[in-house]
Amino acid sequence: MKRYSKIVDLFLRAHNKFNLLESEPRDFSTGDLLYSTEIHTIVAIGEKPAINLTQLAENLGVSKSAVSKFIKKLLKKGYVLKSRPVGNHKEVIFNLTDRGKTAFKGHEEFSREIFGSLYDILENIADREIITIENFLKKLNEELDDIK
């Protein structure tokens, strides 16, 4: 058995568990059930207000057409506002409505609750090990980008 097969197996198991966690829509304190693509779009806008479509697609790691679909749903549900910056009639930017801000805060609470123990584990790992993990995940993402 290759020395890395255990790592690959553990990574895939964790990936499958994350997929299960992400597959269920959740209420983030708004009374609506939001899918992971919707709440992650809300979070990306909440973290960078006045973000444009291209930046949003890059941030989420998906195509601009996919982001357009997410945004249409969120506009219709009242979570996102679409506008144009002053002096720029071409660019479209996105911000959160009050409802979107509520969902954003609800997601922060959800993340603390669900991932708090993971954050505790990471806090107790040496800096050099964190760098190794980050490098592995960066390289993994680059490889996955090339597979498309």
Results as ranks from 00 to 15, higher is better:
N16P: 00
E108M: 10
A126M: 04
T54I: 03
G100C: 03
R84S: 14
S65A: 10
N19D: 13
F94D: 07
S111L: 12
D120E: 15
F94R: 07
D120K: 13
G100L: 02
I125P: 01
H40K: 12
N19H: 07
T102H: 07
R112C: 04
A14C: 08
K6W: 04
I114D: 02
V86H: 10
A103G: 04
E58V: 10
S83L: 02
I71H: 06
R99P: 02
G78S: 03
I133N: 06
F115G: 10
K69H: 11
S36M: 10
F104C: 05
I51Q: 09
A50R: 09
H15I: 02
D145F: 03
L60V: 11
Y79V: 04
Y119Q: 11
Y35R: 11
L75S: 04
S111K: 12
E58C: 03
L74P: 03
L96R: 04
A103K: 00
F94T: 05
I130M: 11
E22A: 11
F94A: 05
K48Q: 14
V62G: 07
F104T: 09
K17H: 09
A103N: 06
P49D: 13
K148N: 14
F94G: 05
I130A: 02
T41R: 02
G100H: 01
F11I: 12
N124H: 13
D27N: 14
K90D: 15
V92P: 00
E142W: 01
K148P: 00
L122N: 05
S63I: 04
I147F: 15
Q55H: 06
Q55M: 05
